[in-house]
């Protein structure tokens, strides 16, 4: 029977099987809460009857997801907003920081890629600044910027700039000499050479850098929002932890994964659009 299916169909079937088995295993592994009647008197006296916090079974997570996703944009005060609003805040911060980073990294990467001097001059700074954990900037950003919202955006900016910068520089420096010579023999000015030859030639490498950057930015925003608080998916996770609502925590973890996957997929589409075969 399986022989008739394509590779994709077989893989999908296997995925579904793994999901169902995993969920069943998870569901049965969670011990049921004891009913109050089964407790000894001593247990009842020491508060054993109160529901214990525990990892929820998947059925509860699915119920929670259904509840949250059926009304994602409700706003019932600072600590009770729909998952859509929280994710919206996070995406807004990520995109703002990311676009600012792209606006700096891509032109600077062009410069570094085209000029040996610029490359050598900038390289020591890049090598020192690049390995710094983005969250290490947070205290300094909070003090200097004096605004938690802008600080979170700054952290995104600083973490997403490096892969874009280095990949742009690498892509631009690696443009084949022949193609540059084609531009030169056609008397293209430096601006037109940059846009009609170097940019399309380096685009796949640049987009790869942008794809890595958006992934890192989405990793970092969760941690940054846990620190700055207020809104966002990171804050939501932390807030639900404080509420000891592990169902919501698991649900939001899954949502972080889904949004991250969608962001990556968007860049995957972009990457295919600019790809070329030599």
């Amino acid at each position: 029977m399986l022989d008739n299916l394509s590779v994709n169909q077989r893989a999908a079937l296997l995925s579904v099987v793994m999901l169902v088995v995993g969920l069943l295993f998870w569901e049965t592994a969670i011990p049921a809460q004891k009913a109050a009647a089964e407790l000894t008197e001593y247990e009842r006296l020491t508060g054993g009857g109160a529901p214990k916090a525990g990892v929820p079974p998947p059925s509860q997570v699915i119920a929670k997801a259904w509840e949250q996703l059926s009304n994602p944009f409700y706003d019932a005060g600072p600590n009770d907003k729909g998952i859509g609003i929280q994710i919206g805040y996070s995406i807004y911060r990520v995109l703002t920081g990311y676009i600012l980073a792209a606006m700096v990294a891509i032109p600077l990467g062009f410069l570094i890629g085209m000029s040996q001097v610029a490359y050598k001059a900038f390289n020591p700074f890049i090598q020192v600044l690049r390995p710094i954990s983005p969250l290490a900037w947070m205290p300094l950003a909070l003090f200097v910027i004096q605004d938690s919202e802008a600080s979170a955006i700054f952290v995104i900016f600083i973490c997403s700039i490096w892969p874009m910068l280095l990949n742009t520089a690498f892509g631009v420096a690696g443009v084949r000499e022949d193609w540059v010579n084609v531009a030169r023999t056609h008397e293209l000015g430096s601006f037109r050479t940059a846009f009609t030859v170097i940019l399309p030639a380096a685009a796949p490498t640049i987009i790869t850098g942008m794809r890595i950057s958006i992934g890192i930015a989405w990793l970092v925003i969760v941690a940054a929002e846990m620190l700055v608080g207020g809104t966002g998916i990171g804050y939501y996770v932390w807030n639900e932890w404080n509420n000891l609502d592990l169902t919501s925590v698991i649900f939001s973890i899954l949502m972080i994964g889904v949004v991250g996957m969608l962001l990556d997929a968007a860049f995957g589409v972009l990457q295919r659009a600019v790809a070329y075969a030599e």
Binding site: W179, N181, V182, T185
Partner: peptide, 17 residues
């Protein structure tokens, strides 16, 4: 370089995109 002098390179040098 100038447009008055056209070049055909050995490796074609076409822009692959």
């Amino acid at each position: 370089p100038s447009l008055d002098r056209g070049v055909v390179f050995q490796n074609y040098s076409l822009l692959p995109w």
